[in-house]
Design a protein around this nucleic acid. Sequence first.
DNA 1: ATAAATTCTTGACGAAGTTAATTAATCTTG
DNA 2: CAAGATTAATTAACTTCGTCAAGAATTTAT
Lengths: 396, 396
Amino acid sequence: MPRSAPARAPITSPAAATVFTTVLTQGPVSRVDVARRTGLSSAAVTKAARPFIEAGYLEELAAEGRIAPGAGRPANPLAVRPGREYFVGVKITGDELIGVVTDLRADVRAAARRPLAARDVEHVVAALAGLVGELLAGPTPDEAVNLRERAYCLGVAVSGDVDRASGVVRYSPFLGWRDVPLAELLDDATGLTTTLENDVKALAVAEQWFGEGVGVSSFALVTVGAGIGGALVVNGELVRGAHGVAGEIGHVPVDGGGPSCHCGGQGCVEAIASTEAILTRARRVAGDPVLSMADAVARARGGDEPLREVFAGAGHAIGLGLAALVNLAGPERVVVSGEGVATYDLFEERIRRTFAAQAFGSAARCGLVIRPLPFEEWARGAAAVAIQRLFAPRGR
Amino acid sequence: MPRSAPARAPITSPAAATVFTTVLTQGPVSRVDVARRTGLSSAAVTKAARPFIEAGYLEELAAEGRIAPGAGRPANPLAVRPGREYFVGVKITGDELIGVVTDLRADVRAAARRPLAARDVEHVVAALAGLVGELLAGPTPDEAVNLRERAYCLGVAVSGDVDRASGVVRYSPFLGWRDVPLAELLDDATGLTTTLENDVKALAVAEQWFGEGVGVSSFALVTVGAGIGGALVVNGELVRGAHGVAGEIGHVPVDGGGPSCHCGGQGCVEAIASTEAILTRARRVAGDPVLSMADAVARARGGDEPLREVFAGAGHAIGLGLAALVNLAGPERVVVSGEGVATYDLFEERIRRTFAAQAFGSAARCGLVIRPLPFEEWARGAAAVAIQRLFAPRGR
DNA sequence: ATAAATTCTTGACGAAGTTAATTAATCTTG
DNA sequence: CAAGATTAATTAACTTCGTCAAGAATTTAT
């Protein structure tokens, strides 16, 4: 039985949403400052902020923290009260569910994991409902809050082709699913309003609102690891792709003579720089068919030149992919993340060198930011998608 | 002395702009239809349309053309009166100016060319002012209109790094210019309000409003010829790139072992598939250092396998670039154009084959449209940029 | 103290768009 | 062929949102 999401946040007008998101993402800001940043009049900000303050979403901070006081009445910065609302985010991988409860700022308040014994839809739905129940039953660190009453939105992140608007998993290679109306099933199973999103896109949403994407209208997120994924925010909007595909830097072809990719293409970045691809090459180069990734990394760090070259080759492929991405989409910044970042010392130089050589003209000024994201971040991304729901209560 | 642009078009509200652009780009439409397509109420459409009709920008067509009458009062389709306003567009190449006068629908009413004897700023500005004067003095085919009074906007297209907002040519390799405030100079020299834009982006604007991009929120334009350029429209907005670079499919690296590109990179699409690159390879393959392009094309069409393979190789590079573009940006459609399209029979199959093989998943459903655009089209693109000015009278 | 600066609030006003009712023009049907 | 059905366009009253201008609040500078 899906509980219908009560429209708790008093977002009724464009200006209300603008003011609230500004305070949410740009930290404590005075009303006048919000007005300056958004182009609204300060009167409009005052009016728009009031209902949020009354509903407990925003609060006025004391004017203590004034750095450069100057003349005039001191500002009363507005800040979100993050504990006013909680959100649940779950990332589904092939063999595990990773769940978090976050506050309005997407800060993690509780976390839990649950292994997946099977991948059929019924089992995953049941396990996910169980995980959500566990998360909402648990005590919050700071206060005795009834999470079950406070949380009403669930965000779920899955890799693959996901149609957020309808809440359907169109195709997920890891789970072996096709056209599963997961959001609907989870509405019923958890009693929470569920929003479904592709995992990398969810992560990009988290970055856009609370990470490296704040205040940046155009950026890209690239995740390096078992697979190589990406998402793109252009002109402040997440690019979804007309056919659901966008940001797939992993399948940009960068080496005509390169290895075949499971996608059917040849020389894709993922076929060269994914964990598996690196390990395959490392084993061949080392002449050791059972070499482990940890050993390969250790030996490369120890100075084993052929192995170092394997990692550098992966870095080269990633650099070419980034150059293609930046020359085409022109982002202001690219965030590189994923499990693979743990061994970034082995890639970084080559990535930067190749990128610098292939970026066209001033596109080379695009900033490459390395950001190791622990696995929980993926679930946090899912929660960020749920937070977005505050601003678009209808639809998915 | 720049004549200040009189605000002739009664565009005062968002709804007015929405209604007018809908009629302009979607052809004759009834008010109710406009309402349905835009989400406005029909009352709002009636109100918004009236001032345009009174000012002569829109007119009501007789209800003759009803296809499926059905019951009910017949619709009165709204249509633009294209001759209400004229626009001048000029494309600057390295050795020539190409100018057109268009109506509101960007249909060309007059055209003229003028060779460029020199490339210094003063000379180009003077030549351009002369060309504009000639265009506006000439008679229009349909009626005796005083173009000088009717035209008040000039669009200028230049290849290279152009900052439309400030009207400055930041860097133009063909002209050898850096940081030239061209729009300002042309305001003074021509008396028309000038808007500057990158040439490929201008062409994309023309496509977005009057060509293959109508009703498509996300598409790409690729031009193949002496250079290989591109522009991207995502979520209905032209992508400008944080540093002014975007859509540069010509500099996507697709062949690690490929030839060096003048941009400093290696294996760029342009280094393989530009006219010059093709000719260089063709001469080597044919063993004839003075082989002309026309002869190479003729021999390839005649069945010369090595030469056919040269063209096919260019097609392969373009196909890889398109795959990168589509996997990253996810457009609904890609328009391929440029002078090179004239010999498209030699590329097409390989472009499509490579693209199909490398497009990721349902991205392969993206439509490739071939559209030969005569050279005047570039100037028409410049005029389209001027037309956009109707909707944003301030700024550039 | 008085003036100047800056933030925030308030209430009148105006612009833009909605809904609901009305008028208009055509087709359908007993 | 008149009455009703159906769709399009218009009108008028109302709602909503945000601006403007004036003023209150609270500080520093002189």
